Amino acid sequence: MPIITDFIARRLPLSEDEIGPRHPGALYQNSTGAYEVLVLVTDPREAAQLLRRDSARWAVIVRDVLRADGEPFVTGAVWTSEDRLVRPGRTTDAFVPAA
């Protein structure tokens, strides 16, 4: 069965493609709002727990910056052509204090 497994693995989108440029600190916009990425979770077990699903490969915690009462929330929505990057985020896990 390795041939079928290899075929399926090649057909699955890469997590990086699904996440897109949503790294901590990034700001992106789509038709539903403008979101600041607070945390990118790439541990599948933690992502599934946050999304309350049986399985997940990743999750993103974001905050809608257009809402005064915008509370952080978890999403597993994939990056699409409808999403627009406004400000890139950090691609490293190092802590960078705000100015």
Score class of each variant (00 low, 15 high):
1 M>Q: 12
1 M>V: 10
2 P>R: 14
2 P>W: 14
2 P>C: 03
4 I>H: 13
6 D>V: 02
9 A>V: 02
9 A>E: 12
12 L>Y: 05
12 L>I: 03
12 L>D: 00
12 L>M: 10
13 P>T: 04
14 L>F: 01
15 S>L: 06
16 E>K: 11
16 E>L: 05
16 E>W: 00
17 D>Q: 13
17 D>W: 02
18 E>P: 00
18 E>S: 08
19 I>E: 02
19 I>P: 04
20 G>H: 06
20 G>M: 08
20 G>C: 08
20 G>N: 06
21 P>D: 07
21 P>V: 09
23 H>G: 09
23 H>S: 14
24 P>N: 06
24 P>F: 09
24 P>W: 11
24 P>C: 08
25 G>W: 11
25 G>S: 07
25 G>C: 09
25 G>P: 05
25 G>M: 10
26 A>H: 02
27 L>D: 02
27 L>E: 04
27 L>H: 08
28 Y>L: 10
29 Q>P: 00
29 Q>L: 03
29 Q>T: 12
30 N>P: 01
30 N>M: 03
31 S>A: 15
32 T>S: 15
32 T>M: 07
32 T>R: 12
33 G>C: 08
33 G>W: 04
34 A>W: 00
34 A>F: 00
35 Y>D: 01
36 E>C: 05
36 E>M: 09
38 L>T: 01
38 L>P: 03
39 V>R: 15
39 V>T: 15
39 V>M: 08
41 V>E: 14
42 T>I: 09
42 T>C: 09
43 D>R: 03
43 D>L: 01
43 D>T: 04
44 P>T: 06
44 P>N: 05
45 R>S: 15
45 R>T: 12
47 A>C: 03
49 Q>M: 10
49 Q>S: 12
49 Q>N: 12
50 L>P: 04
51 L>S: 06
51 L>V: 09
52 R>H: 15
53 R>N: 06
53 R>E: 15
53 R>W: 05
54 D>E: 15
54 D>K: 12
54 D>L: 12
56 A>W: 04
57 R>I: 01
57 R>C: 00
58 W>V: 00
59 A>L: 07
59 A>D: 02
60 V>S: 03
60 V>R: 02
60 V>T: 14
61 I>N: 01
62 V>I: 14
63 R>A: 06
65 V>P: 00
65 V>T: 13
66 L>A: 07
67 R>Y: 02
67 R>K: 14
69 D>G: 05
69 D>I: 01
70 G>I: 04
71 E>Q: 12
72 P>N: 07
72 P>K: 08
73 F>D: 07
74 V>W: 02
74 V>Y: 01
75 T>G: 03
76 G>E: 10
76 G>M: 10
76 G>W: 08
77 A>H: 10
77 A>D: 13
78 V>W: 00
78 V>N: 01
79 W>F: 07
81 S>I: 13
81 S>C: 03
82 E>T: 08
82 E>H: 11
82 E>D: 15
83 D>Y: 04
83 D>S: 07
83 D>F: 06
84 R>H: 12
84 R>Q: 12
86 V>T: 02
86 V>W: 01
87 R>Q: 13
89 G>R: 08
89 G>M: 06
89 G>W: 09
90 R>E: 14
90 R>N: 15
91 T>P: 00
91 T>C: 07
92 T>D: 13
94 A>K: 13
96 V>E: 14
98 A>I: 11
98 A>G: 00
98 A>Q: 15
